[in-house]
């Protein structure tokens, strides 16, 4: 036991040193991993765009993603305010558009990529890029069974796809403009419905100006 351990000077100096030391270590760890984290984010974004266009899936080799992205996807300069970025790709001679869009979710923003035909009448694909929904509940919007439901889904005359309680296993009918919500996460599902409608409006806006 050091006698002066509880003196004011010691407490202040000790606390200061400990804080500086640990924060320094953290910033080093953060800096060291930063390029890797950024590469991961880039990869995730490019993969999601390709997956939404139906040009890649989980069986696509990781090394091919970048090449595929550069050769097939065009990043569009003009975009509506609501979308963060817009992309176009030609699939079997037909042009398609995609937008990256961020909209509020239950706990934080949800970022997703939605690809559709230029008049936004049918969805080509939908991928969730980032979300902070409740793990195991709303967080399941990132799972394949949920996003797969949007593939080929017809957009209703009001320009939306309804996300509502169903069997919880996925709605197989692409003509009813309706997909199954995540069981136990109706609020998150509402947010996804709003996000999809916004993304469709953005696609339509770009499609109309082409």
């Amino acid at each position: 036991m050091k006698p002066k351990k509880d003196s004011l000077g010691y407490v202040v100096v000790f606390t200061f040193i400990v804080c500086v030391a640990f924060v320094l270590l953290l910033s080093v760890a953060n800096q060291v991993t930063l390029p890797r984290v950024e590469a991961n984010q880039n990869y995730a974004s490019h993969y999601a765009v390709l997956a939404a266009f139906g040009l890649a899936d989980s069986s696509t080799a990781k090394s091919e993603i970048e090449e595929l992205y550069l050769s097939k996807v065009k990043e569009l300069p003009a975009r509506p305010i609501s979308a963060a970025s817009a992309y176009s790709a030609e699939i079997d001679g037909t042009p398609y558009l995609a937008v990256k869009i961020t909209n509020p979710g239950l706990w934080g923003p949800i970022t997703a990529i939605l690809a559709a035909d230029p008049p936004a009448e049918r969805i080509l694909g939908f991928e969730i890029l980032e979300q902070q929904e409740t793990p195991g509940l709303g967080g399941r919007i990132g799972e394949a069974w949920f996003t797969e439901q949007f593939k080929g889904e017809k957009v209703s005359a009001e320009g939306r796809v309804i996300v509502a309680q169903g069997t919880g296993k996925g709605d197989p009918d692409p003509e009813n403009s309706r997909v199954d919500a995540v069981t136990g996460a109706s609020r998150t599902s509402d947010f996804v419905q709003i996000l999809v409608a916004k993304a469709l409006a953005a696609v339509k806006e770009i499609g109309g100006s082409l």
Partner: peptide
Amino acid sequence: ILLKAYQPAISKQLG
């Protein structure tokens, strides 16, 4: 930090 750098999929899941 480690999860974000080396296991991005799990990091994304757990949020």
